[in-house]
């Protein structure tokens, strides 16, 4: 698993202030800290920045590149700003993002011209996708043809199933997992897959968000997720791929992680019957799986039940 570090994000007030004040030290510190935690790439979310986007993204890319040697994910809806970031990038950059609308016409050729990765969200511009099949349909009908036309090989694409909140769109959690599974089979060579992982727990109480993100990550990894955009400062989250790779089943929690991963890798639901329910963390993980699988209706205090 490769994690695209999410922490340079304009929604965070400190980041917003740093961008406005062109505070190099702040941005560079945040970049270095994420690199130290093992980020594979860094997302640079500058917001829409309609007026100053071109200048801000150029500044952001140059600032970050002075201190870290990682691919950069250029995250804005402003296409001109993305282009200025591409021009400034030393490594193969990631365009974040196009969707399945007319943005494809601009951004796919741009990805081809600058030899970049591109994240494509399965969003058709009107309603949110309602099923795995609807997501696949957007890939097959819109995203892949646009990539082919621009001459972008399928393994330079990152497909993003558009993760929705479990609180309010509970049935969509499994649909996004299944979408990732289907994305990996949709073209040869297989496209890469990503997602905004923490979207799943948006509007959930702060104290349960890491747990929700971690459990959802394991399910998504089982289905074939390559590179989530996630919080690299979540130590447990970053521990998960190590547990899965080393097959370390030395603790009850690790055993459950492996159990969930194996089930999802074989396209099954998780069977908690072997889990050590005397462990509080194991119980919480199992309850979270049941919420994500739609077996138990989500409520903020579902862990109390």
């Amino acid at each position: 698993m490769k994690v695209i570090g999410e922490s340079i994000h304009v929604i965070a007030p400190a980041v917003r202030t740093a961008i406005e004040g062109r505070d190099k030290a702040f941005v560079q510190n945040m970049a270095k800290r994420q690199a130290q935690k093992g980020a594979y790439a860094l997302d640079l979310n500058i917001g829409p920045q309609k007026k100053t986007g071109v200048e801000v993204m150029d500044w952001m890319v140059r600032t970050v590149q002075e201190v870290v040697d990682l691919p950069l994910s250029l995250d804005t809806t402003n296409a001109a700003a993305i282009e200025s970031g591409l021009k400034a990038s030393k490594k193969m950059a990631i365009i974040n993002s196009t969707d399945a609308t007319d943005r494809l016409k601009v951004l796919m050729p741009m990805a081809a011209q600058y030899d970049a990765h591109i994240i494509a969200l399965t969003y058709g511009g009107t309603a949110l996708p309602t099923s795995a099949d609807a997501r696949v349909e957007l890939v097959v009908e819109k995203i892949l043809p646009a990539a082919m036309e621009a001459g972008i090989p399928s393994d330079r694409l990152f497909l993003d199933p558009l993760v929705l909140t479990v609180n309010g769109n509970q049935d969509q959690a499994m649909q996004t997992v299944e979408a990732v599974r289907l994305f990996k089979q949709i073209a040869e060579p297989a496209p890469l897959t990503t997602c905004g992982l923490s979207n799943i727990s948006n509007s959930c109480p702060t104290e349960i968000r890491p747990l929700m993100n971690e459990v959802f990550l394991i399910m998504m990894l089982g289905a074939g997720l390559d590179a989530p955009i996630a919080d690299v400062f979540d130590a447990e989250l970053m521990r998960i791929p190590r547990v899965l790779e080393s097959r370390d089943d030395s603790t009850p929690v690790n055993k459950v992680y492996l159990g969930i991963y194996d089930a999802y890798q074989s396209g099954e639901k998780y069977d908690p019957s072997g889990a050590d329910m005397s462990d509080q963390r194991v119980r919480d993980i199992v309850k979270t799986v049941q919420v994500l699988e739609g077996k138990n209706l989500y409520a903020h205090s579902y862990l109390k039940l």
Binding site: N167, Q170, L297, Y298, A299, H300, S301, K304, L305
Partner: peptide
């Protein structure tokens, strides 16, 4: 009018 909030209040 929201299903998750209805359940939440019952839990509380």
């Amino acid at each position: 009018i929201e299903i998750n909030l209805a359940k939440q209040l019952n839990i509380l």
